[in-house]
Amino acid sequence: MGEISIKINIADRVYPLKVNMEEEEIIRRAAKLINDRIKEYQENYAVRDKQDLLSMCVLHYATSTLKAEKKVTVEDTEVTEKVYQLDHLLNEFFSK
Rank of each mutant, 00 (worst) to 15 (best):
K32G: 14
D12Q: 11
I26A: 11
I8N: 02
E3S: 04
R37Y: 03
G2H: 07
I38N: 03
K7R: 09
I10F: 02
R28Q: 08
V19G: 03
P16C: 09
G2P: 01
L17F: 06
I10V: 12
E25T: 06
K32E: 15
S5R: 14
K7G: 01
I27D: 03
A11Y: 00
A31W: 01
K32W: 09
I34V: 14
A30N: 06
A31Q: 02
R28W: 11
D36F: 10
I34C: 04
M21V: 13
R28M: 09
E24N: 14
N20F: 07
Y15T: 09
A11M: 05
K32Q: 14
E3I: 08
L17T: 04
Y15P: 00
K32D: 15
G2S: 07
I26F: 05
A30K: 07
I26K: 07
A31T: 06
V19R: 12
L33K: 15
E23R: 07
I4S: 08
E25D: 15
E23V: 00
S5F: 07
N35M: 02
I8P: 00
E24F: 11
R13A: 03
N9V: 13
E23C: 03
R28L: 08
D36P: 05
N20L: 12
M21L: 12
E22Y: 07
I27N: 01
M21S: 13
I8E: 00
G2Q: 06
K7D: 11
R13P: 11
R28Y: 09
N9H: 03
K39H: 13
E25R: 13
R13V: 07
V19L: 02
I8T: 05
K39V: 11
V14K: 10
P16E: 13
R37H: 10
S5D: 04
